[in-house]
Amino acid sequence: MKKLLILPAILFLFIAASPSETGFKVGDKAADFNLKNVDGKMVSLAGLKNNKGAIVIFTCNHCPCSVAYEDRIIALHNKYAAQGYPVVAINPNDPVKSPDDSFEAMVVRANEKKFPFPYIYDVDQKVASVYGAVRTPHVFVLTREENAYNVTYIGAIDDNTYEPENVQTRYVEQALDEILAGKKVTTNFTKAIGCTIKWKS
């Protein structure tokens, strides 16, 4: 009898933990996380120091769209960390489905590119699921209000993945410049072509 009860409970847990269709929308309160960084230390929003927010980017090693943006993500961090908005990069991919996105491979890539920001591993994919990340790269700009974080921008980094020299609008920079100027973010949601998140089967 006990077993009969356990099965639906497991099924329910499975459904509840599967990628959410909804996720966060602009204006929602963002959830904190506590995930292992490539240096072995745990990283959380609460653990960030002297910050006004964070640029949370779901990204990974293998996706060419993510790779195309690596240098621009480094530049974002270098420009905005000092102004209170550091980049926190999160790899949500299942290493069984995408071996190039294993924790070990993350360490290698972070060292090769000398990432100046944390590159953390969403090992059970819960953070990507709760945030509603669906592709890589997928950006969530968070602004801090005391100890809470508001989702202020969701979307792409800019409007040209493969040709940085032909970018017309830098969405994330535009949003951050407006936030830093105390203005309302005019474009707070954009879409881009990207790789699917490789969910565990």
Binding site: V134, R135, G155, A156, D159, N160, T161, Y162, E163, N166, Q168, Y171, T190, K191, A192, I193, G194, C195, T196, I197
Partner: peptide, 20 residues
């Protein structure tokens, strides 16, 4: 059409941009 945001919704507003 590198400016993805300009046309993804025209294909379908439900599309996040992930492929396939």
């Amino acid at each position: 059409e590198p400016n993805y945001n300009s046309w993804i919704d025209k294909v379908n507003p439900e599309w996040s941009g992930a492929i396939p």
